[in-house]
């Protein structure tokens, strides 16, 4: 018997605290698999956010820094500038990255900071109990938009991948989803590519991963995957928004 699937080395054995069916766990594993594939576990430093993934440092066999809410790209910048030959990534949710940390992510991207950002978009604040996020969909009910997100009073969701693509600093930006095994494979490819961009020193890389929050969406884990596919993907189209030629070759 040969093993076709097991725990990646860069992922620790600690049990995840996430709710049943929350796709954070899948994305953690994909990041660890990419790090294993590229053989960079001893050269990688992670930066954890504030939000559900605040304890991300417990789940990786990697050196880690825990950042204040939204500040992970600034912290990663500091690490990367001291250790330019290491690989630095942030793992941030939508409240962290697209609300309180919007300045930090935009400027890290604009500087072409050679870091990799794993951006988890599940259209809601998970940790604090299901409040409206900058990425909550029009009409989406949350604990602070109990009548549904009203675009006339609170405006529109932010498409982070597209917005950052308008900048010259980023080298690689894509949006992926983890709602079925096929898309999970694609998400892994994207994450690996984002790390390769950093390894080659090509610039800033970001993968926006559409993710679920069954608990705060009020759906079963299986229903949540379906909701993501039917509601989030139409608003947040999947694809590669920016990719340097050098990396396209590597990934081909």
């Amino acid at each position: 018997m040969e093993q076709v699937f097991g725990r990646p080395k860069a992922l620790s054995e600690k049990r995840l605290h996430y709710c049943p069916g929350c796709t954070h766990g899948i994305i953690h594993r994909l990041v660890a698999e990419a790090i294993d594939d590229l053989g960079i576990q001893d050269k990688t430093i992670g930066v954890a956010p504030v939000g559900c993934a605040v304890l991300a440092y417990d789940y990786f066999n990697l050196d880690f820094q825990q950042a204040a809410h939204g500040r992970a790209p600034a912290v990663a910048t500091g690490i990367k500038r001291v250790l330019p030959d290491r690989f630095v990534f942030t793992y941030q949710g939508d409240g962290d990255l697209a609300s309180i940390g919007m300045a930090e992510i935009v400027h890290a991207a604009a500087r072409g900071e050679k870091i990799t950002v794993i951006f988890i978009n599940n259209a809601i604040y998970g940790m604090t109990g299901g409040q409206m996020a900058p990425t909550s969909l029009p009409g989406q009910k949350t604990t602070t938009s109990p009548y549904g997100r009203d675009i006339n009073t609170v405006g529109y969701p932010i498409r982070v991948a597209e917005m950052l693509t308008t900048l010259d600093g980023p080298a690689y930006i894509s949006r992926v989803s983890v709602h079925d095994p096929k898309h999970i494979n694609k998400a892994k490819e994207a994450i690996r590519k984002a790390f390769e961009v950093q390894i080659q020193g090509l610039g800033f890389s970001l993968v926006e991963v559409l993710s679920t929050c069954p608990t705060n969406w009020g759906l079963s884990p299986r229903e949540a995957l379906k909701w993501l596919e039917e509601n989030m993907i139409p608003y947040y189209p999947l694809g590669v928004f920016k990719s340097p030629e050098e990396v396209s070759k590597v990934g081909a």
């Binding site: 040969e2 076709v4 796709t23 766990g25």
Partner: peptide, 21 residues
Amino acid sequence: ISCAFCARICPDTVIEVYRET
């Protein structure tokens, strides 16, 4: 059939998959 779809989508790394050699 050792396709590992289950393991790929498992958020908690519960599943290991093997294949006949």
